[in-house]
Design a protein around this nucleic acid. Structure first.
Length: 188
DNA sequence: AGCACGATCTGA
DNA sequence: CAGATCGTGCTA
């Protein structure tokens, strides 16, 4: 129900990052429905953003960022973690939104299981999102607008006064202007 | 072929 | 604050 369409993701990246808050990330996995409300995102905006993987050009890893909006960009970092992004903007403009945190909705027990421990209701951190939802590199390039398996659905409306903007996390290698940019959004 | 490093998390 | 842990991209 209410699956987000390609035109939603084709909007400018900051708008998509903001509007993804309150949407529901859903994954059908082993016959179970796992889902969570998105509560934190970050925007990575094209070749001029030195924090963005695509800023140094197209490589095998970041290739899907150069493709259609609404495609999942999933990569592996630190030798152990997966990160989930959604490609935004027009084809050829390599931008994406990183899904940094969700609040579990359906399949909480299963998600809890998938996480080894921690009794927290809130999954915080992009690696935890993938761990809890069972998302890995196999879904890199997946079209989220297909409406099967992994997709994003309408869920809750978040009023703008509940949205905080801060600098992005873990990008010390980036230029100062990009470190300073308030391109991280979360529900407060 | 070798190497440095990362859009992180955990536990001390 | 160090350690885990390995794919990726750059240099040669």
């Amino acid at each position: 129900m209410g699956i987000l369409t390609r035109s939603f993701f084709e909007q400018d990246t900051l708008s998509v990052a903001r509007e993804l808050l309150g949407k529901k990330l859903v994954h059908n996995l082993d016959g179970q429905r796992l889902s969570g409300m998105i509560i934190e995102t970050e925007a990575y905006i094209g070749t001029t953003d030195t924090a963005c993987h695509a800023s140094k050009g197209k490589t095998p890893r970041n290739a899907v960022m150069f493709g259609k909006a609404g495609i999942a960009y999933i990569y592996f970092v630190y030798g152990m973690h997966y990160m989930l992004n959604v490609v935004t903007e027009a084809e050829g403009n390599p931008c994406a939104v990183l899904i940094r945190a969700i609040m579990p909705v359906e399949g909480r027990a299963e998600m809890q299981n998938r996480r080894k421990k921690s009794g927290k209701n809130l999954t915080d951190g992009p690696a935890k999102v993938c761990q809890a939802m069972g998302i890995d590199k196999g879904l890199n390039g997946w079209d989220l607008t297909r409406g099967e398996s992994l997709r994003i659905e309408e869920y809750q409306k978040i009023s703008s006064d509940r949205i905080q903007r801060t600098p992005r996390i873990g990008i010390n290698y980036a230029a100062q202007k990009d470190k300073d940019a308030l391109w991280r959004f979360r529900v407060g």
